[in-house]
């Protein structure tokens, strides 16, 4: 709906260059720690990369497969808890724990998927909330193993094997590498048969089925990849922060923030989640630093407002405004006239 015209040759060149530019951008982000050295800035960059990575992982399910998960914290948390528990209880290196945790999350996502993918749209969102909450309650109550609501903390023991580093730059490089992998995966999906199948089922599931696409299978693949990558990010988070608590890493609030960043940036695009993180993380840092003491909750209130404005006026995210600014104006204008239109489709 955003671009109605035939792409001109210039545009198609731009389209061909886009992935190259994307990868270059990500690569340059990885090189940032070479230039920036102070602790605060590095932490800040890490945060941007972290949110971009987890939102990009969500994007594969939410943006590409149309599976609007509100329970991605479950996959993230499974990754974080599995690798930390393996490390603390059995001395397993987080590098192995990361793979194990991600496979656990992948299996969990397949279970959720097999159980709920017959359902559509918001039922899926509700089901993911329910599964994530069941997991959170289980973790809170499994005090002996999981540390309950206080969570688990890892003692600081630097070493490559422990995925714990003296300098923050290493963490930044690591997170950038993961973001790079997620971005590249997304790009590969977009250009593959899987990507076309996802694009089709996002538009019309019945038509996609009639063209031979096993929509359930395709969605399962998407959610599995998404869960796996979310869990990888979870492990990286756990061994950077060195503390995981169920309310932070398994809560609904976290799940919502993940989705929010992807949506604000632009769902179903490679760069959208990164753009969302680049805009939202500094904003939240600023608001938190400025108003945390006086006006607790202000930043989430502003988040919520941005989210509403975005989905109503710019449902394709900020990236669509950058790609085609005029379409946004058209859309706002159409919205205005649409609100006086007598009849709209009840459920699209």
């Amino acid at each position: 709906m955003s671009t109605m015209s035939t792409p001109s040759p210039k545009e198609s060149i731009a389209r061909r260059l886009a992935p190259v530019l994307t990868l270059l951008l990500l690569a340059s982000l990885m090189a940032l720690p070479l230039v920036v050295t102070d602790t605060y800035s590095l932490h800040f960059i890490w945060k941007v990369l972290f949110w971009a990575a987890i939102a990009a992982a969500w994007n594969i399910a939410g943006g590409y497969a149309g599976l609007f998960s509100l329970g991605h914290a479950a996959f993230f948390g499974l990754g974080a808890y599995t690798s930390i528990l393996l490390y603390m209880q059995a001395g397993v290196s987080p590098w192995i724990g990361m793979i194990v945790g991600s496979l656990v999350a992948l299996c969990f996502s397949l279970a959720i998927g097999l159980l709920t993918l017959r359902l559509r749209g918001s039922f899926f969102a509700l089901a993911t909330i329910a599964f994530a909450e069941v997991l959170r309650i289980a973790v809170v109550n499994g005090r002996d193993v999981t540390g309950g609501s206080e969570g688990l903390s890892v003692s600081f023991a630097p070493g490559l094997v422990n995925m714990i580093f003296q300098d923050r730059a290493s963490y930044v490089v690591l997170m950038a590498a993961v973001l790079f992998v997620i971005g590249a995966t997304t790009l590969l999906i977009e250009r593959s048969a899987l990507g076309y199948s996802l694009a089709a089922l996002r538009e019309d599931e019945d038509a996609a089925e009639a063209l031979g696409i096993d929509t359930i299978r395709v969605k399962l693949i998407a959610i599995a990849i998404s869960a796996f990558l979310s869990a990888v990010t979870g492990t990286l988070y756990a061994f950077y922060i060195l503390l995981i608590e169920p309310t932070t890493v398994l809560g609904i609030g976290f799940s919502v923030e993940i989705a929010l960043i992807a949506i604000i940036g632009g769902m179903g695009t490679v760069l959208g989640p990164l753009l969302g993180a680049i805009l939202i993380v500094p904003l939240s840092e600023y608001l938190r630093a400025e108003f945390a003491a006086s006006l607790q909750g202000l930043y989430l209130l502003i988040y919520g407002t941005i989210l509403i404005v975005m989905v109503v006026f710019l449902p394709n995210g900020l990236i669509s405004a950058i790609r085609d600014p005029r379409s946004v104006l058209r859309r706002v204008r159409r919205r205005k006239s649409a609100s006086s239109r007598p009849e709209e489709k009840a459920d699209a």
């Binding site: 048969a193 076309y196 694009a199 089709a200 019309d204 019945d206 063209l211 696409i213």
Partner: peptide, 28 residues
Amino acid sequence: TYQIVKPFGKLSVRDNVLVGALNQTRNV
């Protein structure tokens, strides 16, 4: 085909048909 047409609206005509062709091959 569907009596009430169900095009993938946001995809190009060629990509619409390409989705159908994936039934024959996985190579894009």
